[in-house]
Amino acid sequence: MSPEQYCQEKCASSGSSFYYSFLFLPQERRRAIMALYAFCREVDDVVDECNDISLASTKLTWWRQEIERVADGQPQHPVGQALQAVNRDFNLPKEQLLEIIDGMEMDLQQTRYLDFKGLSLYCYRVASVVGLLAAAIFGYQDRQTQKYAHDLGMAFQLTNIIRDVGEDARRGRIYIPMDELKRFNVPAADILNAKYSDNFTALMQFQTERAEQYYAQAFALLPAVDRKSQRPGLIMAAIYRTLLDEIRRENFQVLHQRISLTPVRKIWIACKTWIAG
């Protein structure tokens, strides 16, 4: 299996909504974004699938070394080899790839965030940096598109947090800021024990409104000259905002289940958004 095939399989098997936004890209850009996404999946899986914190930390250190090897032209992992190949056409700064790993490592160091400022750093590292790299792969002319990519990444991560509240709680993690739990009178124990309440619904509505605000900010920042090239991000936004609507319709019943869209629905949204341009 070639590095490119490995990355494609990693992307397809993840079941992520991101995969559907890649399908419309020209081959070279598709190869690059799949290499980037496969890298994100690899380092994220280290944290999610390794119960031994010391071992997970060691694996993330290995990946930092692998990014250095990518920069030096001597990668060992198929994903590293794929990143090196696409680096010839798309400059993916190693500093940003390393910052993504820094974000993943935050999951090993803390399971709570006191306020949104602290959470924002996490979201920036694991999502906005990815958005900046993706925007560069898609191509842009106006530097303001970087601001759009930053805010869109924030919106995506906030959507993930809303969707995964229950799943994260079963791993002992709560990403909703602790001061906001207190403001809405939702004890952390309610999240960990999957206990619904009117207060929890109000809390989740607040989280959703914040995510929607970031989507609105991102769309307002996207220059018209780059709208066509950035359509993959707009496809993802359409899928994720539809997911948010679905979660809201389900009255935020996210503690005991993972609400998602069917692949057919994602493809339909992707096609509709791509054609709309």
Score class of each variant (00 low, 15 high):
146 Q>S: 13
115 D>V: 02
132 L>M: 10
131 G>H: 02
137 I>H: 09
199 N>T: 09
116 F>T: 13
132 L>P: 05
153 G>F: 01
155 A>W: 03
141 Q>H: 13
197 S>K: 10
131 G>S: 03
179 D>L: 08
158 L>V: 14
180 E>Q: 15
150 H>P: 09
111 T>K: 13
162 I>V: 08
138 F>C: 06
148 Y>I: 06
177 P>V: 06
119 L>G: 03
173 R>N: 11
137 I>T: 12
122 Y>I: 06
163 R>A: 00
195 K>F: 07
171 R>C: 10
176 I>R: 03
154 M>W: 02
185 N>Q: 14
181 L>G: 05
176 I>E: 03
183 R>D: 09
167 E>F: 03
130 V>T: 02
171 R>T: 05
166 G>S: 02
167 E>V: 09
124 Y>F: 12
184 F>K: 05
123 C>M: 07
114 L>W: 07
178 M>L: 09
192 L>P: 05
190 D>Y: 11
126 V>F: 02
113 Y>R: 03
171 R>F: 07
146 Q>W: 05
133 L>P: 04
146 Q>Y: 08
196 Y>R: 13
108 L>T: 04
131 G>P: 01
182 K>Q: 11
108 L>Y: 05
199 N>K: 11
152 L>P: 03
186 V>Y: 04
154 M>L: 12
161 I>S: 14
181 L>K: 03
171 R>G: 10
118 G>S: 06
157 Q>V: 04
151 D>G: 10
132 L>K: 09
120 S>D: 12
121 L>A: 09
152 L>Q: 12
183 R>F: 10
196 Y>V: 10
175 Y>R: 02
175 Y>W: 09
115 D>E: 08
159 T>H: 05
158 L>Y: 14
166 G>Q: 00
173 R>H: 13
141 Q>Y: 10
173 R>K: 15
143 R>D: 06
125 R>S: 15
122 Y>G: 07
112 R>T: 07
116 F>P: 07
174 I>N: 02
153 G>I: 01
194 A>L: 05
171 R>I: 02
166 G>Y: 00
175 Y>N: 03
115 D>W: 02
168 D>Y: 01
185 N>D: 15
174 I>T: 09
138 F>E: 07
123 C>T: 09
150 H>C: 15
155 A>C: 07
134 A>Y: 07
197 S>M: 11
143 R>G: 06
132 L>F: 06
176 I>C: 08
152 L>N: 10
128 S>L: 01
196 Y>C: 10
131 G>D: 01
112 R>F: 05
161 I>R: 12
120 S>P: 08
156 F>V: 02
128 S>P: 01
167 E>M: 05
184 F>I: 06
195 K>M: 11
194 A>Y: 06
182 K>N: 11
161 I>E: 09
185 N>G: 11
198 D>E: 13
178 M>W: 09
197 S>W: 09
165 V>F: 00
139 G>L: 08
116 F>A: 14
197 S>P: 13
189 A>H: 11
123 C>V: 08
147 K>C: 14
127 A>R: 00
112 R>D: 02
131 G>C: 02
